[in-house]
Computed example of a mutant assay.
Amino acid sequence: MRSARWRGAMDVLRTTGDREALMPELPDVEGFREVLMACGRRRCVTDVEVRDAGVLRGVTVARLRRELKGRCLGKAWRHGKWLFVPTDGGPTVVCHFGMTGSLVCCAEDDPIAPHDRILLTLDHNRHLRYRDQRKLQGVQLADDTEVARITDRLGPDASTVSGPEFRELLSGRRGAVKSALMDQSVIAGLGNLLCDEILWRARVHPRTPARSLSETVLRRVHTRMGRVLETSVRAGCVPPRRSWLTGRREDSEPLCPRCRRSLCSGRVAGRRTVWCPECQT
């Protein structure tokens, strides 16, 4: 069973050739959480196979096996792009998916993919696999103090931040509004595609200084963020709809879905950014 996010992202890649579509953001990680929760009834770990220790962070192969084998995975929760999986009486498994990571649930005898790095055998002969091509982040074990240390570095989750808190967080920020939105210590969970889509829908240029935005504009950005996230979480990714900026950004001659003006492309916050010069002034 593949995640909805992975299927959606591969559709984006086939349609647009956009490698950024595979970079997990909040909707993708929420999809991984759902994959994990549906992978077996009790989700008890009967075996641990680490095929590539390059995805382990601060934990050895031996300790990972010792801590997880025989334990059941509890109710997973997400904050931003981080996934936290408590175990019964043991540490929390913490996953960050970097640019190319994913969780896949499948049958134990399904062929192992080239980038399957960690394989957890669960009850009912299910495999939960951590799959990652580039290995920029990975998997660690954490106690409650270490979990708190991770979350304390993050801003509020983008899917739950209130309007007043959102406006307070952005109103005093130096630099471009896109930079502020992508800063995980300000708001957790937004990535490149989400930020471009949100700002396009809010009619805000990505290079606009965040502190120059009026309360009315910040309220509009927050509203559009909520709507984009709601739809994207249902899809398991930022969907490549033709009515969305996401569905146009990799066209050979991309046009704004709203006004049909040619889209612009440049770099903001170190990332390729797409916007409409007519709609986003």
Rank of each mutant, 00 (worst) to 15 (best):
S3P: 12
A4F: 02
R5T: 13
A9Y: 00
L13C: 02
R19Y: 12
E20T: 07
L26Y: 05
P27I: 12
V29H: 06
V29M: 02
G31Q: 02
F32N: 07
L36M: 13
C39G: 06
G40N: 14
G40Q: 11
G40F: 07
R42G: 02
R43Q: 14
V48T: 07
V50A: 09
D52N: 13
G54L: 12
V59Q: 10
V61K: 13
A62Q: 15
L64F: 09
R65T: 08
R65E: 15
L73H: 07
L73G: 05
H79R: 13
K81A: 06
T87K: 03
G89S: 08
G89P: 01
T92I: 08
V94F: 10
C95A: 10
T100P: 00
S102M: 11
S102W: 03
C106S: 15
A107L: 14
I112R: 07
I112C: 05
P114C: 00
H115K: 01
D116A: 01
L119K: 01
L119M: 01
H124C: 00
H124I: 00
N125M: 11
H127K: 02
L128W: 02
Y130L: 08
R131N: 15
Q133I: 13
R134E: 12
K135W: 10
L136C: 01
Q137H: 08
G138K: 10
Q140M: 15
A148S: 14
R153C: 04
L154R: 03
P156H: 05
P156G: 04
P156W: 08
D157H: 06
A158Y: 14
S162H: 01
G163P: 00
E165S: 09
S171H: 15
S171G: 09
R173F: 04
A176C: 02
S185L: 04
S185W: 02
I187F: 07
G189F: 10
G189V: 03
L190Y: 13
W200L: 08
A202T: 08
H205S: 13
P206C: 08
P206G: 02
S212R: 05
L213K: 04
V217K: 02
R219N: 11
R220Y: 09
V221E: 10
H222C: 12
T223Y: 11
G226T: 11
G226P: 05
L229P: 03
L229Q: 05
E230R: 11
V233R: 13
P239K: 10
T246I: 01
P254Y: 07
C256A: 09
R260N: 03
L263H: 04
L263A: 01
C264H: 12
S265F: 04
G266P: 00
A269W: 06
W275S: 02
W275K: 02
C276K: 01
P277A: 05
E278N: 09
E278R: 12
T281I: 00
